[in-house]
Design a binder for these strands. Structure first.
Lengths: 213, 213
DNA sequence: CATGGAATGAGAGTAGCTCTCAAAATATGG
DNA sequence: CCATATTTTGAGAGCTACTCTCATTCCATG
């Protein structure tokens, strides 16, 4: 729960164990499970990979796998961007037009994304396109993101986060953004994600390119 | 499906077997499974209801249940609105602004919805809010709807259905519409769905109510 | 009424996931 | 450095959704 206790005290001279042995092991285990999973999926595909196999390769028991990840799908999906998004959004100047803020924030998120192993990012994205269970889980987490987003949005504009309009607006944004990643994967990860994102945001801001409406 | 066929003519002499006995039995079985499921869920909740119980009450074997519905979630989710939506959309005049068409079409869909048993509609919607598995399945089917929608949209405007902009626009619409149903359920099914839908479409068309942006 | 094809039931099997309990590892106080 | 408290782990039993196979029953058709 709180690792602060350990981090606070002197310790600076050696400063080696900023985290206790226990905590470090937990992180290692978590990563071992993840990498084992990615490797196995690359070798055999998602469905053919059982949790037992994952456990074996990660050198833990199946029980432990489920202790670290509630479901098999959760092993492949990271999703630590939500916090980042909200944080960055809050950091934007108050008067700034919403879509401008969104643009900045999404680019920040993409930069964070670029920090990860590209192979893994691609595999993960591909799985969200190909494997229904993974895609489902992703939708699920996107709808949580939607909730956060509408909170930020309401704050930004001083609106009620539970108002229909705010909710619809936020969720509609999420839907559009999700499609960007699908598009990217389905088109063999071609094109710059930053460009795609920009185009998507433009559409959602101003509607379809030209003509009618 | 359509129970109309059975209800319409009370066995007029000549045209008794418009459907063979086999077909009629299949329809009956399908409905028996559905009603058994709804009843059990109302009594015990979704998770507590097993497929075995459903089979027992519907007086079929568990195997048969899975022969009729690929997953437990599919038993509760109908979703035959997609076809209707696309069809109605195609029937709208060519020059009509897109959002206007959408408005008409969605209202048509709501009317069809009103034709169903309100109890069932509510239970189903409620499940999509409360039960993750059901919600997932619903997201899944919504993304299929998105695909249909972007086809219709592309046709309507003469655009490429696989273009990023079209895809994003369609999916963003879907996201917003989905949120309407969530909102409705979370607010105890209060308010007129037609109104809610109108407000949602307005937001997605013109952005948030007033001020900034 | 006989024959062919479809729907069903019975049963075995798999995999994801939960729960329990005892053993092992680690932190903490003396 | 040892004893004790706490946390983490492994082993295993158990449940349920879901798949597959095969024999049986049921309906259609000539």
């Amino acid at each position: 729960m709180n690792r602060m206790t350990a981090a606070r005290s002197p310790l600076s001279p050696a400063e080696r164990p900023r985290l206790g042995l226990r905590e470090r092991k937990k992180i290692k285990t978590r990563e071992a499970i993840r990498t084992a999973t990615y490797a196995l999926i690359r070798e055999q595909g998602y469905d053919a990979t059982t949790v037992e196999q994952i456990a074996e390769r990660a050198e833990v028991s199946p029980s432990t796998v489920f202790r670290y990840f509630p479901t098999k799908e959760d092993i492949v999906l990271t999703d630590e961007y939500d916090a980042l998004i909200v944080e960055e959004l809050r950091a934007r100047p108050a008067g700034e037009p919403w879509m401008e803020s969104m643009r900045h924030v999404m680019h920040k998120a993409l930069e964070a994304n670029a920090g990860e192993d590209p192979e893994v990012v691609r595999l993960r994205t591909q799985l969200t396109v190909q494997v229904p269970a993974v895609r489902s889980r992703m939708f699920e987490s996107m709808s949580e993101t939607g909730r956060l987003l509408r909170g930020a949005l309401a704050e930004h504009y001083g609106l009620d986060p539970d108002a229909l309009e705010v909710r619809v607006y936020a969720m509609s944004l999420i839907g559009g953004l999700m499609e960007v990643s699908m598009y990217w994967a389905e088109n063999d990860f071609g094109g710059d994600l930053h460009d795609l994102m920009d185009r998507a945001l433009t559409v959602m801001d101003r509607g379809l390119p030209r003509e009618n409406r």
